[in-house]
Design a protein around this nucleic acid. Structure first.
Length: 417
DNA sequence: TCTGGGGTCCTAGGACCC
DNA sequence: TCTGGGGTCCTAGGACCC
C-alpha cells in the first residue's frame, strides 16, 4: 500500500470583496468593506448588474451571490456597491500562490481564489499538516491582509468539502473517520456537484442529507441520475482519487468569449460586428496558446433569456481570425431566429497543438499571407493595446474592436477536480 | 429575479457505415 | 422495404463549478 496522500484546499473568504477591502485599506481608505454591508458587482446600466461577492454584514441581509443588484438594494438600501477590478484580484491571487509555493511545488489553481496543494512530500520537511495549514493561513492574513479557509484531507474532494465547513479564517480536517460526524449531517445541496437541478431529484427519492446519499443504494441512484449519480454517490462516501493537475492550462479543451450587449440587437450587421469583435479575442487567445481548432460554436441569448447554439465541425484546422469568422457568420445566419438579441458568444474547441497542423489541399500562399498578418496584428496589439489596429467596419460603430474576456491569462474555474 | 462570463463533461438523437 | 444491430461521428442542449 502506498502512503496516504495529504491535500490542502485553500479558499479565500469572500475573495473579490476581501481583496477590494485589503487594497483600499492599503491605499489609505479608513473603511474596511468587510465590516459594512457591501458587495462587488457589475453595472446595471450595461445589463451587467449582478452580485459577484458580498461581505458578511451584507450576507445578514440575505443577499446572495448571483442575484441582481436591484434585488440586493431592495434587501439593503444602504448597501455599498463596488465595481470589480480584476487586475487587482489577479495580483492578490498571484501573491497568495507565491506564498504557498514556499511549502509545495504541487499546486493546482482551481480558480482565481482557490487552489489545491499536494502536501504529501512536503510533510517530511515541514511536518504536521494541521500546524502548517494554520501557519499558511496566518501568514496570508499578516503578510497579504486577507483571510482564507484551509481544508485538509486525503483527497481533493474532501479537502474542498473541509474548506467549506465553517467560515471565515479557519482550518478544518475531513478525514474518512470524520465523515459520519462532520460531513453526513450536512444538507445534500452542500455536496460538490449537487446543483439546483439535482437537488429536487434527490429530495423526491427521500435523500436530504449527504449521509442519506452515502447510505443509499448505488443502483437506485444510477437509475435516476446515470453517471452523474455514481459520481455524487462516491463523493458522498468520500471516494475520489484525482491528482494535482500541473499542466491544466496546456490541456485546455476550449476557448470562448461572450458578452451581454447593453441594448437588444435587432439587425444582422450589428450582430456580426459584435461577433467579429469576439472572434478577434478568441482567435488571438487561440494563437497565444499555440493551438488550432476544428469546432466552432455560436451562442445566442434572446431578450427573453432563452439561449440556443449552433456548432460546426470543420474538416481542417485553423487559428485564423478570418477563417473562424467566416464560419461564425454562417452559423449565426443559419441559427438566428430573427428576434432581439441580448447576449452573443463564440467558442472554439477540438483543439490541437499548432505543430500538428496538416496542410489541407486548400492551403496555399494566400493562407500563408493571412497567417503572417494575424501574427503581426497580435504583436502590435500585445505591445500597444487592442485598439492600435482595427478593421474599418468598427469605426464610429461604438463597438469595441476586440471584445470579451476579463484580462489575458485570468485563471478560470471549472468543475473538474 | 430584469438575471455575467469562462470553462468541462454528459446525453440523446440522427446520419452514415458495414 | 411494414427490416437488425453495432459502431462512430456530428449536433444541440443541459448539468455543474465559481
Amino acid at each position: 500500500m502506498q502512503n496516504k496522500k495529504i491535500f490542502f484546499l485553500i479558499d479565500v473568504n469572500s475573495a473579490f470583496l476581501s481583496w477590494e477591502a485589503t487594497y483600499r485599506l492599503q491605499h489609505g481608505s479608513k473603511i474596511d468593506l468587510r465590516n459594512i454591508p457591501s458587495i462587488v458587482g457589475g453595472d446595471p446600466k450595461t445589463r451587467h448588474g449582478i452580485v459577484l461577492a458580498k461581505s458578511i454584514p451584507a450576507k445578514k441581509y440575505n443577499i446572495t451571490t448571483g442575484e441582481s443588484l436591484r434585488d440586493a438594494l431592495i434587501k439593503c438600501p444602504t448597501l455599498t456597491i463596488i465595481k470589480p477590478s480584476y487586475m487587482i484580484y489577479l495580483q492578490a491571487s498571484n501573491a497568495m500562490i507565491n506564498l504557498v509555493k514556499e511549502y509545495s511545488p504541487k499546486i493546482q489553481r482551481f480558480s482565481i481564489d482557490e487552489c489545491f496543494v499536494d502536501y504529501t512530500d512536503s510533510q517530511k520537511i515541514f511536518g504536521d499538516p494541521i500546524k502548517v495549514a494554520n501557519e499558511i493561513k496566518e501568514r496570508i492574513k499578516n503578510e497579504l491582509g486577507f483571510t482564507v479557509n484551509i481544508g485538509i484531507s486525503n483527497n481533493k474532494l474532501l479537502a474542498k468539502m473541509a474548506s467549506d465547513l465553517k467560515k471565515p479564517d479557519m482550518v478544518h480536517t475531513l478525514f474518512k473517520d470524520e465523515l459520519k460526524e462532520k460531513f453526513w449531517p450536512l444538507s445534500v445541496e452542500k455536496l460538490f456537484m449537487v446543483g439546483r437541478k439535482t437537488l429536487p431529484k434527490l429530495n423526491r427519492i427521500g435523500i436530504f442529507t449527504i449521509g442519506d446519499l452515502a447510505n443509499s443504494n448505488l443502483e437506485l441512484i444510477q437509475y435516476y441520475l446515470k453517471s452523474h449519480g455514481k459520481l455524487i454517490w462516491e463523493y458522498a462516501n468520500g471516494i475520489e482519487n484525482s491528482q494535482i493537475m500541473l499542466n491544466k492550462y496546456e490541456n485546455i479543451k476550449s476557448i470562448g468569449n461572450s458578452t451581454t450587449i447593453p441594448y437588444d440587437i435587432e439587425n444582422v450587421e450589428i450582430a456580426l460586428l459584435h461577433l467579429l469583435s469576439l472572434t478577434e479575442m478568441v482567435s488571438m487567445r487561440l494563437r497565444d496558446k499555440k493551438k488550432l481548432c476544428s469546432l466552432i460554436s455560436v451562442t445566442i441569448k434572446n431578450n427573453e433569456f432563452i439561449s440556443y447554439s449552433h456548432q460546426r465541425k470543420l474538416y481542417y484546422l485553423t487559428d485564423s481570425t478570418n477563417e473562424i469568422f467566416n464560419e461564425v457568420k454562417k452559423l449565426f445566419i443559419n441559427s438566428w431566429k430573427n428576434e432581439p438579441i441580448r447576449h452573443l458568444g463564440i467558442s472554439v474547441s477540438s483543439l490541437k497543438n499548432n505543430d500538428e497542423k496538416q496542410l489541407s489541399i486548400w492551403d496555399n500562399k494566400n493562407n500563408e499571407k493571412l497567417r503572417k498578418l494575424d501574427q503581426t496584428i497580435d504583436e502590435l496589439r500585445y505591445k500597444y493595446g487592442n485598439q492600435i489596429i482595427q478593421r474599418t467596419s468598427f469605426l464610429h460603430s461604438g463597438i469595441k474592436n476586440v471584445n470579451g474576456g476579463i484580462e489575458k491569462d485570468y485563471p478560470t474555474m471549472n468543475s473538474i477536480l
